[in-house]
């Protein structure tokens, strides 16, 4: 098999006395959707934070295309083409969807005004509307603070933000948790599209049918360790649940 795009090995992360990751490993290949599943508190979000530069693992190595990388800030991860939809979304509720989409990457005007830091709000809004349209995100109004949108709409904006900017890898931590049936399908479509463009998508979800519907592979985390890996095409919900609860384990995971 080809060299994995992302290969995290033996990550350990403590929060005080809590050992959130106890030697967790994780692999993702370009052009595939990997689901990361596990019970509440298994360490999924912590793993994602370590791999997107928000938290620093206490030990372990992270290889990107076979090269060791240090992800000491979200900026470092983003510079490597890694984008993340955080479980808490990490949006600014007082800013409108376009401002959130371009948060930290605002477009400036041309010429002197741009040098003075003046924003090109119209262009950002135009591109944001185009991206939302493209990704099937329907918003009643793109000029209201994102905090005034519904939870699902906020989540859709966060998903849009990640896929607009990603070039290699997207982490999505429960991106469909607050979504209705229609929006959920749209997000899953977006995930497939991103994969078909050759990126890797890491999907965290508690919805096993959804996982099996969209993922190519599944990795199972339990008590801060990877305990099993499955091919989505040949596995069942029972097997996944068994691995999550510890009833089933694989030697070579």
């Amino acid at each position: 098999m080809a060299l994995p795009l992302l290969d995290a090995r033996e990550l350990v992360k403590h929060y005080g006395n809590v050992e959130a990751l106890r030697g967790a490993s994780f692999t993702a290949h370009a052009g595939e959707v990997v689901a990361l599943v596990g019970d509440n508190g298994a360490g999924k979000s912590t793993l994602v934070k370590c791999l997107s530069g928000v938290a620093r693992p206490d030990s372990g190595t992270i290889l990107l295309d076979g090269t060791p990388v240090v992800l000491d800030s979200p900026v470092a991860a983003r510079a490597l083409g890694i984008e993340t939809v955080y479980q808490d979304l990490a949006v600014a509720p007082d800013l409108d969807p376009a401002a959130n989409l371009f948060l930290g990457r605002e477009l400036r005007r041309g010429g002197l005004l741009g040098k003075l830091g003046v924003l090109d709000k119209r262009e950002m809004r135009r591109r944001a509307v185009a991206s939302f349209h493209d990704l099937g995100v329907s918003l009643p109004d793109v000029d209201v603070p994102i905090g005034a949108l519904s939870g699902g709409q906020r989540q859709s904006v966060a998903v849009a933000r990640s896929v607009v900017w990603a070039s290699r890898l997207v982490f999505m931590d429960e991106p469909t948790a607050a979504l209705g049936v229609v929006q959920r399908e749209r997000v899953l479509d977006v995930i497939r599209r991103v994969r078909d463009q050759g990126m890797a998508v890491v999907l965290i979800s508690h919805n096993m049918p959804e996982v099996l519907a969209v993922a190519d592979r599944v990795e199972v985390l339990r008590l801060g360790r990877r305990v099993a890996r499955f091919d989505a095409a040949t596995t069942t919900v029972e097997e996944l649940v068994g691995a999550m609860t510890g009833a089933l384990s694989q030697e070579d995971a």
């Binding site: 928000v54 800030s73 979200p74 900026v75 983003r78 993340t84 955080y86 979304l89 990490a90 949006v91 600014a92 509720p93 007082d94 800013l95 948060l103 930290g104 990457r105």
Partner: peptide
């Protein structure tokens, strides 16, 4: 609005 979001946004 959200300091942590701002930090994560770089």
């Amino acid at each position: 609005s959200n300091e942590e979001a701002a930090r994560r946004a770089g």
